[in-house]
């Protein structure tokens, strides 16, 4: 099997399955342990507090919008870019359609994908600079925090390069890394696979655990009459 067949075949399966099963296991591990050691969560469980707590913080309806408007709004935009481009970019959907699944769904205009990609890259750079500059953030920042910003941004950087082979950025990268041109698609796929594989093992697992944590604290604060 060639390297490219490996990356586009088995490794892709491994990445998606690690991501999906790993995330599901995170949830199952929580449920398994919490039913034994976190009984108050179940005793006081309340659907209203759960939904309020999740929606208030999933949507920009919370106190941080007022306290840190710039960082918070950029955070929301970052997440929108991170989720929407991989899901709705036309070439990705074309691949799903070609695949054994034959799936297809709404696709965004390519010019949107271009802009959302550039915005995500810009916000990633801002996040890194912010971690370096602000003392209160620097002290809690770990090496993995920097690396994970990179891991999230790389599929977008390579995606943008590969879809703009006439651009100056592409010329600059291929002159610095002569092999890039030859493997550009593979590298793009690899960066995506890396991100998916890392999700269950890092703080990126918050894509699932966010909902659990908000539920837990929604129940805890709700029953004490605090703001959830």
């Amino acid at each position: 099997m060639t390297f490219s067949a490996l990356v586009e075949g088995p490794l892709l399966w491994i990445a998606f399955l690690t991501f999906l099963i790993g995330s599901a296991l995170r949830l199952l591990f929580f449920i398994a342990l919490s039913t034994k050691k976190d009984k108050p969560v179940y005793r006081y469980f309340n659907f209203k507090w759960m939904m309020l707590s999740i929606l208030r913080w999933l949507l920009p309806l919370n106190v941080d919008i007022k306290k840190n408007p710039v960082f918070t709004i950029l955070g929301y935009i970052f997440h929108i870019c991170l989720l929407s481009v991989p899901l709705f970019y036309s070439a990705h959907i074309a691949l799903w359609q070609e695949s054994r699944f034959g799936w297809s769904w709404w696709q965004m205009p390519d010019v949107w994908a271009d802009w959302l990609t550039l915005i995500l890259i810009a916000i990633s750079i801002f996040f890194i600079i912010r971690r370096l500059v602000l003392a209160e953030v620097r002290i809690i920042t770990t090496v993995s925090d920097y690396l994970l910003i990179l891991v999230c941004a790389l599929p977008f950087v390579t995606g943008y390069l590969n879809t703009h082979p006439d651009g100056s950025a592409y010329a600059w990268v291929t002159s610095a890394l002569p092999l890039y041109g030859q493997y550009s698609t593979l590298i793009h796929i690899l960066t995506g696979e890396l991100m998916l594989i890392l999700v269950p093992f890092t703080k990126l697992s918050h894509w699932v655990l966010f909902f659990v944590s908000r539920t837990v604290i929604g129940v805890e604060f709700g029953r004490r009459n605090y703001t959830v």
Partner: peptide, 26 residues
């Protein structure tokens, strides 16, 4: 003392720093 909540919170803290100026000690 390790329960599912504490383990989850140790894992997911994104180290974003939004909590900094909410603390009266800070």
């Amino acid at each position: 003392r390790m329960n599912a909540r504490l383990k989850m919170w140790m894992r997911i803290c994104a180290h974003c720093g939004l909590c900094a100026d909410t603390c009266h000690f800070y």
